Simulated scan of single mutants.
Amino acid sequence: MPRAQANGLELEYDTFGDPAAPPVVLVMGLGAQMITWEEGFCELLASRGFHVVRFDNRDAGLSTWFDELGTPDLAGIIAGTARAPYLLSDLADDTVGLFDALGFAKAHVVGASMGGMVAQQLAIDHPDRLLSLTSIMSTTGDPSVGQVSPAALETLTKPAPESREEQIEQSIANYRVTGSPGYPATEEYLRRKATRNYDRGRHPVGMQRQAAAVVASGDRTERLHDVRVPTVVLHGDSDVMIDVSGGKATAAAIPDAELVIVPGMGHDLPEPLWPDIVAAIVRATERA
């Protein structure tokens, strides 16, 4: 896969569809690699007349890692006694740097989980570069909404085992906690997904630095009131990683945003829901 020089670092990316079609850039979440946007999903979206781009955020997958910045002091960041290595605004700048590298004056942006936060930040910091915004299973940064359940919090904070086999098993167990109860995945699918993620570039300390960026970036609610790009907000009613209140707050903060609550959906993108998710993205693009 190709790499782009963007914002002083390298971003691994992949594309689907006609390069002459309107671009849709997919931003993935905390510690997640771009392959979490599965090829079938990207191809389905591209078939609706788009040039689809997925990429690895900094500190994830095959993009630049920032290991020289060390492990962040999350407790200190929460207490205000330590600083995060970088912020969500830096990840938004990375995304704009990818736009520049690929020659996009503007693009439709779709973000999932932390990627939704990055997409929101992009709409705040670079409103002239967005055609539309789709925020999936995300939140505004307001600590009173979008809370993580105790079981999901345990999956986030559990130390990574040392061996490959143990890390794969841990990932499978985590997927079972955070996945969609209305659309349960098979054991074979979860094992294949966990194995592929580990072998391609699982990077737990990079996820910690991304988490520090989320915590340190604070509440975007007031600034989201000024967003004027066509917006769709999707959220599962069974999300234990980011409670559905986070999606409701996002839609309430952005003027004229469409809110879609998906029954049975958790904190993943199950294949049976791909047509509905793509349809919502298309509605945002049509409003643009």
Rank of each mutant, 00 (worst) to 15 (best):
A82H: 06
D73C: 11
A92T: 03
G97H: 07
D67F: 13
S47N: 03
I78M: 07
L88P: 01
N57T: 10
V52Y: 10
F41T: 00
A82E: 09
E38Q: 15
D90R: 14
L88I: 12
L62G: 11
W65E: 08
L87P: 00
R48T: 13
L88K: 03
G80A: 10
W65I: 07
G49P: 01
E68A: 14
G61K: 09
L88T: 01
I78P: 00
V52P: 06
D59C: 02
A79Y: 07
E68C: 06
A82L: 09
N57W: 12
D93H: 14
V53H: 01
T81G: 02
F66I: 10
A75Y: 07
A84W: 11
A92N: 06
T64Q: 12
V96R: 10
S63R: 05
E39G: 03
F50S: 03
V96E: 01
V53C: 03
R54I: 07
L44M: 15
L91M: 15
T71Q: 12
F66M: 13
R54M: 09
L88W: 02
G40I: 01
P72C: 12
F55H: 12
G97K: 08
N57G: 13
L62T: 10
L87T: 05
A46H: 10
S47E: 04
W65G: 13
A84I: 12
A79T: 09
G76N: 06
A82P: 10
E68Y: 11
R58W: 11
L87K: 07
R58P: 12
L91K: 08
P85G: 02
A75D: 15
N57F: 09
E43I: 08
P85N: 01
Y86M: 05
V52G: 05
P72H: 10
L74V: 04
H51V: 00
D90T: 12
D67N: 14
L74E: 08
V52I: 08
A46E: 09
Y86H: 03
G97I: 03
I77N: 02
E43W: 10
G49V: 04
C42G: 02
T64N: 14
D90P: 02
A75F: 04
D56M: 09
V52W: 06
Y86E: 05
W65P: 10
N57P: 13
L69M: 15
G80T: 12
T71K: 14
I77A: 03
E68K: 12
A82R: 09
R48Q: 14
D67R: 11
G61Y: 05
V53Y: 01
R83H: 14
A92I: 07
D56Y: 06
L74T: 05
N57H: 11
L87R: 15
D93Y: 07
G97Y: 06
G70R: 13
N57A: 13
L74N: 06
A60N: 06
G49C: 03
C42Y: 01
F50P: 00
G40M: 00
F41Y: 08
F55E: 03
F55S: 03
A46G: 07
V53N: 01
F55M: 14
L88Q: 04
A92K: 04
T71F: 08
I78K: 13
T71N: 10
G97M: 10
C42T: 01
E39S: 05
